[in-house]
Simulated scan of single mutants.
Amino acid sequence: MESSITTMQNPPASKLAAFYELTKPGIVLYVAITAGVGAFVGSRGSLQLWLGFHTILGTGITTAGALALNQYTERDADRVMKRTRGRPIPSGRLSPQSALYFSLALLFSGLMYLTFTVSWLPAVIAAFSALIYEAVYTPLKSRSYGATLAGGVPGALPMLIGWSAATGMLEPAGFALFGITYLWQLPHVLALAWMLREDYRLVGFKLIPRGGGRIIGMHMVTATAALLPTVVSPNILGYTGVWYLAGALLATTYFLVVTIFAARNMTSATARKVFQASLLYHPILLGLMLFDTIRL
Rank of each mutant, 00 (worst) to 15 (best):
G92F: 06
S91K: 03
L67N: 15
S46G: 10
L140R: 07
L170M: 02
S164T: 05
L131Y: 14
R87W: 04
Q48N: 05
T270K: 13
M159E: 04
L140H: 12
F116V: 11
I180Q: 00
L106N: 07
A68M: 06
M218K: 15
P187D: 08
R143S: 08
A173H: 05
G152R: 09
M266H: 06
A32K: 10
T240D: 00
P12W: 04
A64D: 01
L69K: 13
P96Q: 01
S119G: 05
L250S: 13
V242A: 12
G38W: 02
S91N: 07
L140F: 14
T240E: 02
A166R: 05
E74G: 03
L245A: 02
I89Q: 01
L279K: 03
G247V: 08
Q48H: 11
L228G: 09
G217M: 08
R264H: 10
I260S: 08
T148E: 08
L29R: 09
A248C: 03
R143E: 09
A123K: 05
F261W: 15
G65I: 11
I216W: 01
P209T: 15
P96V: 00
A135H: 15
I56W: 07
F175Q: 04
T270E: 14
L51Y: 00
L107C: 12
I216M: 14
R143Q: 12
L29G: 07
H282S: 14
F175L: 05
M159F: 00
Q71E: 03
Y137L: 08
P88L: 05
L106P: 04
F261L: 15
R44C: 03
V189S: 14
H282R: 14
A262F: 14
T148Y: 12
I132F: 13
A99F: 02
G110Y: 00
M220K: 13
A225L: 15
A173R: 01
V221S: 11
V31W: 06
